[in-house]
């Protein structure tokens, strides 16, 4: 796993390590690998949106310290949960410039649990909706 402790620390400091409010749905595997009490913010380019079960993944290329981009894996919910929150397979396209708020991995790896994604046009993707019901 790629270690990006410096980036994590910077992001964490910028956010004041805010405690995250409960998300509307929960993963069924243990989420102990994620630092639920920390949020970081990454800016990068979407490589792939894996709209898949049991969880979906946003693969994002983030500029790395050494110049070469680092591919981050951001976990989120199953497709049917995303759809009900108004998040579609087409909501994120390869090449989209995004800013992602996430709970980082505790071990400093290039991954985390999605909180929300802000696209270049200012639209926000999150499990809080908008969506039907």
């Amino acid at each position: 796993m790629v270690k990006l402790n410096v980036l994590l620390a910077l992001g964490c400091a910028a956010l004041g390590c805010a405690t995250f409010a409960a998300s509307p749905t929960a993963a069924h595997h243990t989420a102990s690998m994620f630092a639920a009490d920390k949020e970081i913010v990454l800016s990068g380019t979407v490589k792939q949106f894996q709209y898949t079960n049991p969880h979906s993944w946003i693969q994002v290329l983030v500029p790395g310290d050494a110049g070469a981009p680092v591919e981050w894996s951001i976990e989120t919910q199953a497709p049917v949960v995303l759809l009900r929150a108004g998040i579609k397979p087409t909501s994120l396209q390869p090449g989209d410039k995004v800013t992602i708020k996430l709970h980082p991995l505790k071990d400093g790896g290039a991954g985390g649990e999605m909180v929300e994604v802000t696209k270049e046009d200012g639209s926000i993707i999150s499990l809080r909706g908008p969506g039907p019901n």
Binding site: H29, N53, W57, E75, A78, V80
Partner: peptide, 11 residues
């Protein structure tokens, strides 16, 4: 939708 645990199991 049926939520398969195996389709893209990255955990």
């Amino acid at each position: 939708e049926s939520v398969s645990s195996l389709e893209n199991q990255r955990n």
